[in-house]
């Protein structure tokens, strides 16, 4: 087991390095750089820069070098000093800009992940145990529509619906009063309600996907020989469901962990822009548009690293859950 984890950890570093090169390259792709987009913006306001000044700015920001040299400088900063570069737009180090929103981003993602599993596992098990019941049909239908309905469109619908019902606009996680007065106990119910909307919007598709997987897997396991044996020996239904079938059925659910994380990040980016959430999606979009490359690069990097870590964790969990994987790796 330890050897397996060690091997996986070793693979982790080159993967991250390759991802960082790719991300940096993609973010470098747009013609021009931050200086040109800044100069263009200033020109619109009447401030004209001379060609020498532009060149000077470029050299100052280190944008004059070819992209791979910029990449090595960036990487060197990260590895030796933990310096992720400088955000031109926010005029402070990238790390500071990210830390403003990273805790909330992580919290939102984590809560959604927990919500997904907390809802979908019991529902999936219920549907499998009560196949073809009204509840099963209901959840299967919800599951199907939920996986198919795009996140950010769902956000628009839900926000419109809440507006029609209550006449209030729920944008973002904090109301203007909360931001003005700081957090107080009386705001907690409203805050929780505000949290519920992104939870449903971003979590629905993943939840529905897991419900469908768990249901199919459980049904599969219940028709196996070992279930029949257990039942013949007089095991209780609870033991059969939770101790035997569920453990085997969890396999694809666990391996889907990194996929879930990916969907959460993908889904939350656009939904956050729609719902005006104070997480990283909107910052990323703004950074990409103004070619604030170190900021954009670092945000995408952080998300990618989290996904890779998720994959790693799910692989380890799989090996722990399913002895066959451990043994095949050893052999």
């Amino acid at each position: 087991m330890l050897k397996y984890i060690g091997k996986r950890l070793l693979m982790f570093i080159p993967t991250i390095l390759i991802i960082s090169v790719l991300i940096f390259f993609i973010i470098q792709l747009p013609p021009g750089d931050y200086v040109t987009s800044y100069v263009a913006a200033m020109a619109a306001e009447g401030e004209i820069f001379t060609a020498e000044e532009i060149q000077e700015l470029r050299v100052y920001y280190g944008l004059d070098d070819p992209w791979y040299i910029q990449y090595f400088d960036w990487m060197k900063g990260i590895i030796t000093e933990g310096d992720f570069g400088f955000s031109f737009e926010h005029n402070k180090p990238v790390w500071d800009v990210i830390m403003e929103r990273l805790p909330l981003t992580l919290a939102v993602s984590f809560v959604i992940l927990v919500f997904q599993y907390a809802v979908s596992l019991p529902v999936g098990i219920y549907c499998a145990n009560h196949q073809y019941s009204v509840g099963d049909y209901f959840w299967s239908f919800v599951g199907f529509v939920g996986t198919a309905t795009p996140n950010f469109l769902l956000a628009i619908i839900i926000m419109y619906w809440i507006y029609v019902e209550t006449g209030e606009v729920y944008l973002g996680l904090f109301s203007t009063e909360m931001l003005a007065n700081g957090m107080r106990w009386e705001y907690v119910p409203e805050f929780l309600f505000r949290c519920l909307i992104p939870l449903i919007v971003i979590g629905t598709s993943g939840t529905c996907g897991i419900i469908r997987t768990v249901r199919a897997q459980m049904l599969d396991e219940q028709s196996r020989q070992y279930t029949l044996t257990a039942r013949a020996k007089g095991c209780s239904e609870a033991t059969i469901t939770y101790k035997y079938c569920l453990r085997a059925a969890l396999n694809p659910v666990v391996s889907g962990l990194s996929g879930s994380l990916r969907t959460i990040f993908s889904g939350s980016t656009v939904s956050a822009i729609v719902m005006n959430l104070q997480i990283q999606g909107p910052v990323l979009l703004a950074a990409l548009k103004s070619q604030d490359m170190y900021l954009a690069g670092t945000i995408v990097m952080v998300q990618a690293i989290l996904v890779v870590v998720g994959t790693l964790l799910s692989d380890i969990a799989l090996a722990w859950l399913d002895p066959r994987i451990r043994f095949s790796e050893r052999g």
Binding site: I18, L22, I23, P30, A304, T311
Partner: peptide
């Protein structure tokens, strides 16, 4: 590597590259 990067940020990054 490609599938480790969340798809929509990747789309955004790539489409920001369109002139």
């Amino acid at each position: 590597v490609l599938s480790a990067i969340p798809s929509i940020p990747l789309w955004l990054a790539l489409s920001a590259a369109i002139p």
